[in-house]
Design a protein around this nucleic acid. Structure first.
Lengths: 247, 247
DNA sequence: ACGCACGGCCTTACGTCGTAAACCGGCAAT
DNA sequence: ATTGCCGGTTTACGACGTAAGGCCGTGCGT
């Protein structure tokens, strides 16, 4: 009675099938993303993912071309999402390019916050082309970006430079934030005790005796103002681009 | 005669032995870094590294506490290097904090450029403490940072914020640059042809027909002005911090 | 001088990973 | 009924990280 539960509805593989959604690239990728969100990147294994989908690992290979391709699929899927929900108003002349960039930045930030364990992948994986810079690694998104800026007075050169600056900005802030959030899912991380007990292990490690400033500022350093700082830095970047535009 | 070649020089394992430098954590880590530079992160395997050192894989475990620890060691080593060659002049009141930040930024950039394949590790690995943000993930470096800024008129709060802004800046620009440089060592990457030929596979892929801007700007997008852009963005950041300081 | 503990490296072994290749049941069209 | 494909399974291989124990030369204690 293990996997026979959904057998009787096979009278015809109709669309009304609700029991077993049937394997597909999309479903695999979606499940993989959810899985990584819940567990971790290194936990994402073909066999585990198979189990998650109620299927043997090798079945996945009919839809994804190996693990590497799966990861790429996840990245593409997530970034493409950005383009899909582009409010076309934003691309018009109505709201300025700044509104568009604000929207885009917040969108990418949402990605990073919703999937902190996946984001390093977006940030790190080598793009298909050298002009597809993380995290804006979708042709659609980049095209939107360039279109919007150019239609708002940027010349080619400045649009490209803006693209680069914007990419760097997002990457830096959001990868940091994501790394912070997806705290390694560390279950316990044994201190590994390295030895006996007589010698108090003289190296510096995590006692802050020799680092007075860090020690004093420890709490401040640990505070999380990610949202505000992101917003502020984004403002500054936009100002910079604006100045850049009218120079 | 396979591994006996270097047997006869074992008359005594004296210090004067120049043939086989003898295993040590330092040597292992150094070799690992060099190895990753030459090959890639995923190619760095305990067995491969052993081979590189003329030793069995398991021998490494006497000095590094597993692969994860090895990677951490590599990161630490590289970042610590920054602190070691800190010109103490820079920390004095003589040159301003801006000179220090310029120096530090260029130092980290050198790291990224010298070891583009390792840099993602520095950027991505979870720091030991939440206030050790990549890529400035060394207590020494952070302490230097805070000391310098505070001794130049920053109050605690602003110094901390500067630290965060600076980290994000470096991470974004340099991870991007490193990713670009360490071009995945991709040997060929078969186009994998995905199926028949009748349906032209309606997705966009890499023909730029539907992306006029990208197509037109392709060359500009591919141009590499990393150095200049980095310098410029750094200038702007310093200005921003300066304004921030006297507000 | 001799023995012996010990540090440093090797051998063996286990479980898990990605994935190539062959296989197999059932549906559709012939 | 036959055939062939489609979607999934089985089996198998080599490489990985690493636990556990073996082995051998060196240097110290006596």
């Amino acid at each position: 009675m293990d996997s026979k539960a959904e057998r009787d509805l096979t009278s015809s593989t109709r669309a009304t099938d609700s029991a077993r959604p049937a394997l597909s690239r999309d479903r695999i990728i979606a499940t993989a993303i959810a899985f990584v969100d819940r567990r971790s990147l290194t936990a994402l294994t073909m066999r585990q993912l198979g189990k998650e989908l109620g299927v043997e690992a090798m079945s996945l290979y009919r839809y994804v071309n190996g693990r590497e391709d799966l990861l790429e699929g996840m990245v593409d899927r997530m970034v493409e999402e950005l383009h899909l929900r582009t409010d076309s108003e934003l691309l018009d002349d109505n709201s300025g390019w700044q509104a568009y960039l604000q929207w885009l930045a917040q969108g990418v930030r949402s990605l990073a916050r919703d999937h902190p364990k996946v984001f390093p992948l977006i940030a790190t994986k080598h793009p298909a082309a050298p002009w597809l810079r993380p995290p804006l690694r979708s042709l659609h998104v980049v095209e939107d970006f360039l279109t919007t800026l150019i239609s708002h007075g940027f010349d080619d050169n400045r649009a490209v430079q803006a693209y680069r600056a914007f990419s760097s900005f997002l990457l830096g802030h959001l990868l940091l934030e994501a790394t912070l959030l997806g705290a390694e899912t560390g279950p316990a991380e044994e201190p590994l005790d390295e030895g006996g007990s007589d010698v108090p292990n003289a190296d510096q490690d995590l006692d802050l005796a020799n680092f007075p400033h860090i020690q004093r500022l420890e709490t401040q350093l640990s505070e999380d103002h990610a949202a505000a700082e992101f917003a502020q830095a984004l403002e500054d970047l936009l100002d910079r681009l604006d100045r850049f535009l009218t120079e």
